[in-house]
Design a protein around this nucleic acid. Sequence first.
RNA 1: GCGCCCAUAGCUCAGGUGGAUAGAGCAUCUGCCUUCUAAGCAGAGGGUCGCAGGUUCGAGUCCUGCUGGGCGUACCA
Length: 622
Amino acid sequence: MLSTVSRDVERVLLQTIRDQYHVEYERLNFSTPPRIELGELALPVAFDLARRIKRSPRDIAQELAVAARKVPGVWKAEVAGGGYLNLYLDRAFLALRLAESIDAKRYGRTEEPDLDGKIIVEHTNINPNKAAHIGHLRNAALGDSFARCLRFLGHTVEVQNYLDNTGVQVADVVVGLERMEGKSLADVIDQDGKFDYYCWDVYARVAEFYKQSQDNLKWRSLTLQAIEAGNNATSELAEHVAMRHMLKGKGAIYFAEEGKNRGCWVMRASDDTVSEAGGGETEEDEKIIVRSDGTVTYVGKDIAYQLWKFGLLGLDFYYRPLASEGGHTLWTTSAEDVPGAEPPAFGRARRVYNVIDTRQSYLQNIVLQGLRALGYEEQARNSVHFSYEIVALSPACCEELGFELSDEDRKRPYVEVSGRKGLGVKADDLLDALLDKALAEVQSRHNLPKEQAGSVASIIAVGALRYFLLRFARNTVIAFDFKEALSFDGETGPYVQYAAVRANSIFRKLAEAEGTDEKSVKRDAAALQDFLESHDDIWELVYQAARLPEVARQVTQTMELAQLAKYAFHLAQRFNLFYHKYHILSEADPLRKQHLLLVADLVRRQLQKALDLLGCEVPPKM
RNA sequence: GCGCCCAUAGCUCAGGUGGAUAGAGCAUCUGCCUUCUAAGCAGAGGGUCGCAGGUUCGAGUCCUGCUGGGCGUACCA
């Protein structure tokens, strides 16, 4: 919708510039005027043209304005400042188009996705052996919202949560349970309390156990081999099919006969373009794919997994349904064929996003090199590392948790979460704290039945948590702070939810008082145009509401979910402004009331959709 | 050593492809609940955008150097 207008403007102006000035541009840069009174779109192109054709920017902008005024959807085109071309959009036209678009559940979106084929988003790969912490929550929030944005724009998306139960971390917990604690399977089953919390503790202590003697450390390797020797779909597939046959067959990996990597299968890790004269190739450039004990490393499995995502592995897993919820089935890999199970066609993606923190970028690169070594250049280009910074703890936060820090750590800006040290904020604990606080707030305002209060509190707690995790740019380290994370005021999820709840309550009251709803709101173009022309502040609110698809699109390109979070916050802020300034239900002028209702309705529905993309719901009351 | 990232208000952070007067939230101070919910709104103070050069009509944004911090470079995941 908005994008349709700007695309038309671009086409017309590029043609005009070609015809009148004989200058070729591929694209035009659109920017935003500092205030809505100066229009919705600003083009600084005249500055550049001025230099090229030696004429004043203002004169050029004047001539371009003539052409721009002819584009449908453009109301005015004026020259501002030293030579900006500012465009004013047709207000009622766009408001009514937005209303229709929302009715059709398109929320202002007009364009079709720019990529055919399936997109895989892999996120939240948690080792199933111990409790999740806030770092995992950031990963989940980013991955989930990103997938929602892609779907919103019309892409076919497959979300994968890879739970590997064959890795070293799992082996460590098993060693801890069996060798340190002397637990048998039966003991573990009888265990009271939260098992993942127990594993968190065991895992933290197993490092000490390893330090005690070399014999203790041997258990890790033995246990790992025992796990992989079992009937495990993942490891067998990765090891036998991908590593042994594909990589070896194409000469992508080779057996190291000597040197420090003796006995391993390795891949060259440095770019072959950079075969610098002095050093030559050493073991430093080699990345181990298969260990000397025959087990496959993490990178090795990752290459196999990446191949499988693109449908290049030549083999597939067996699948069985694991759980079912809300019409969706959760599938898991299976060691053997399951009769009667008809899984959808997993994998075979056109593009793959791997949501993993920035520390993995080196290994993600190795995976790409693996694909390239096999000749899959296009797939390598379509493999995207969705990287983000870690969630760390402020030193103050560590001490709040009762964790003693070294003097050195105390001076740091933040301390990394460490599973090995048992240092971190567990996801469940944080959610519990948020729920307690939200419930107290709800009960202090409303007298609701216990169950309903709990459900509202839960929506608010999730809103606060997800917004908190998404409001930071990807490469910003979140130094976790309880006070900030538990806040419901200011730039938070609950603030946005609150604006939506207020908007909804206008329509609830409207139904109670007059028995009418948003469907009966009149849409009179001529009258609306007068109204919006004389209220810049209200028009700006409508304009921002219409920008949702543009923002979602930008998010899929930059992978910055923070932009969506910011957008939702700003829209809520503007709505609150409107809410205070214009009292709708008591409005005496019936026509004016219709306009105000239309605006409130547009905004609340866009706000709700924006929240939905952020993974947040709107509670019935707050 | 090599590679990647970061430095913006007291604190936590935003600042698409360079554009108009660098913005939020928190904290501090002053006001606003007889009105569609005060989890809100209005207002005030608070800045050498780490330092030094360069590119140009224009630099928080791009380039170079420097300082200070973080991460990666495992037969760990």
